[in-house]
Simulated scan of single mutants.
Amino acid sequence: MSSVVALVGNPRGGSRTHLAAVAAAEALGRRIGHDAPPEVVDLSAIGPHLFTPTPSPTVEVALELAAGARVLVVASPTYKATYTGLLKAFLDRLPGGALTGTAALPLMVMGSPRHALAVELHLRPLLIELGASVPTPGLALLEAEIPGLDRILADWADRVAPQVTAAVRQPHPRDLV
């Protein structure tokens, strides 16, 4: 099975968003037959390099990982009812169509259920604009649900694995070269 990558758009290292993204990528990876640990692109570690005027090898490697993933879990905390500017700045570095052949799964961590639609109204369209297939509804996690994350993600992974498996059966553009 192809690569699974967790893209973490939280500007703080060691965040609940990081925990949720990696756990989601692991749970889903197991369900679709990808036993290797997921690759992780943690934007808190490379954030300052996104805004430098000179190219950064660290950013380029992260962009290649994201664009080359077959399954990309894209996670952000909810800031002002949407995803973080850091995540947007990173994704803006990808050319149009860069996620063609990638099954993307949007995930947002939020303090209030009032923001639950942000994952569908804001993050999903961005991923589709970049060419990703978004075969399942996004996952909106409340911060209060983090203690029960294993159970929540097990149920989620069981529910979305068939659609993700079908999406990754399509040849990836990099495999056709």
Rank of each mutant, 00 (worst) to 15 (best):
E60H: 13
A103Q: 11
P57R: 07
D42Y: 02
V177L: 14
L127G: 00
G13T: 04
V160T: 07
V22K: 08
A69K: 01
P48T: 07
A154P: 11
A20C: 07
A132M: 01
V160S: 05
E143R: 08
P171F: 01
P135E: 00
A6N: 05
R124I: 03
E64A: 15
A20I: 05
R159N: 07
L139I: 05
R114P: 14
A144H: 14
H122M: 13
T52P: 10
G29M: 01
S3M: 14
L99D: 08
G101V: 03
D42I: 01
L43I: 10
L99V: 12
A103W: 12
L176H: 02
A23E: 09
A161D: 05
A67G: 08
A104D: 07
L7W: 11
R174T: 06
A104H: 04
F90K: 04
L139G: 02
T58R: 15
V22T: 11
A45G: 15
L19D: 09
L130A: 03
V8R: 00
P11E: 04
L43N: 08
L117K: 12
L99T: 11
I152Y: 12
R169A: 14
A62E: 01
P171T: 01
L130K: 03
V177T: 12
P11G: 05
A6D: 05
V61F: 12
D42R: 00
V22R: 10
I46P: 07
R70W: 10
P113W: 11
V109P: 05
L176N: 01
A140K: 04
V5R: 04
A23Q: 13
V61L: 15
V61H: 15
L91T: 12
S44I: 03
L153T: 02
S44K: 05
P125V: 05
E129M: 15
E39S: 15
P53L: 06
L65I: 10
L149K: 05
D42C: 06
H172T: 00
P106S: 00
L28R: 04
G47M: 10
P48H: 08
G85Q: 11
V168Q: 06
L65T: 11
E120V: 06
D150G: 14
A66P: 13
S44N: 07
T17K: 02
G96M: 11
G9E: 02
D155R: 15
V119L: 06
S112L: 13
G131C: 00
P38I: 06
V71K: 05
V177E: 09
D35C: 11
K80C: 09
A157Q: 02
S2D: 13
P95L: 07
L63M: 13
